[in-house]
């Protein structure tokens, strides 16, 4: 679904100044870095972490929306939601593949997710109690994801940038789908309008937190910007998102739950109220309402599937052996 402002990467690196300068020169010429190119260890590590977190977010992100597939209110909605969640799985798949080009296996990354070592986006640690949450996630969460990911299409690392181009196309479709759900609710009964407003209240602030800590507190932004892994600061993207989204809320006749939200004629952007960073820190460190449930569900799927994966491997070995025997017999 989307990458968050990167959580806790270590971009320290030990290469010679000459090597780093040559690498930086390539970056500055806007050349794409490909998997077999020489690259600083810190660059590789930062990307593995970022792409890994992004992939994990797609996979964990299937759960809150998956919560409504069996209860979707119409056949059309049911099919669209299942297809959307399937898209997220697909994003996970090619992001894991992009990370694998940097020498880390999907199994390793999965283990890190399941053990709680690897992070994923904080947004998926909130529950989806109503159908309107599905609309709000599409509209706001996928909307924020697009803001984050459009610049990633120009990321200096080739496989990541190319994966993002396809991901962004799909996310943009998801975002419109989510907004259309909200529109249907906003034009519906009083009960439906209220459901939509409550979902907006629930998802507004967590969506703003998706862009990561404020620039003054973001520890890994500078180096990532210099290496052109990211192109805009967390606060810049957050402002852009707010400015794009507030008129959409107005069009729906819904109220953004920020009394301090104010149009700034000078900057041509909305100024927003104080974000509760203590909530963000709590969720990132494992204390959101759904953190434990999400990891439990991922672990259960993985553990329940162990015998299936073993069976597939065992069967593949048997087939290979049989072919070998058949070939020897033929010779």
């Amino acid at each position: 679904m989307y990458s968050q402002g990167l959580i806790g990467a270590d971009s320290s690196t030990t290469e010679s100044e000459e090597f780093l300068a040559a690498f930086q020169a390539r970056i500055d010429r806007e050349e794409k870095i490909e998997p077999n190119d020489p690259m600083p260890e810190g660059y590789r590590r930062t990307l593995v972490r970022q792409i890994g977190q992004h992939a994990h977010s797609e996979i964990v992100g299937m759960l809150p929306e998956g919560n409504w597939i069996t209860r979707a209110p119409s056949l059309r909605r049911k099919i669209a939601l299942l297809a959307k969640v399937q898209d997220e799985g697909g994003h996970g798949l090619y992001l894991y593949s992009a990370a694998e080009t940097l020498g880390v296996s999907r199994e390793q990354m999965t283990e890190e997710l399941l053990s709680g070592k690897a992070k994923y986006s904080s947004i998926f640690n909130y529950p989806t109690p109503t159908w309107a949450d599905i609309g709000a996630i599409g509209w706001l969460v996928d909307g924020a994801a697009i803001m984050n990911q459009i610049p990633l299409c120009r990321c200096s690392f080739g496989p990541y940038a190319r994966a993002m181009i396809r991901v962004c196309k799909e996310e943009s479709f998801h975002q419109r789908q989510g907004y259309e759900i909200m529109m249907t609710l906003a034009r519906g009964s009083e009960e439906q309008k209220q459901m939509a407003q409550e979902a907006l209240n629930r998802w507004w602030w967590p969506s703003l937190m998706m862009f990561g800590p404020s620039d003054t507190d973001s520890t890994n932004s500078d180096q990532s910007m210099k290496w052109k892994i990211k192109r805009f600061s967390n606060d810049e993207l957050r402002q852009k998102f707010i400015t794009a989204t507030v008129p959409q809320a107005e069009y729906l006749g819904l109220t953004v739950p920020d009394p301090d939200l104010k149009w700034n004629e000078e900057t041509k952007l909305y100024d927003h109220g104080e974000i509760d960073w203590s909530e963000f820190k709590a969720v990132v460190s494992g204390n959101g309402q759904m953190n434990r449930d999400r990891i439990r569900d991922r672990n259960q799927a993985w553990d329940d599937g162990a015998w299936v994966r073993e069976a597939a491997l065992a069967n593949a070995r048997k087939r290979a052996d049989n072919q070998h025997i058949a070939r020897e017999a033929a010779e």
């Binding site: 299937m62 998956g66 297809a83 798949l93 299936v308």
Partner: peptide, 29 residues
Amino acid sequence: LSEWCGHAPILEEEMALANMGLDLLGQAR
């Protein structure tokens, strides 16, 4: 089949189970 979504044994099967579910729901529709 849609009940499997998010709980399949491997990622490739997430995709396949959802695909088959989508086919059947499309036929039903």
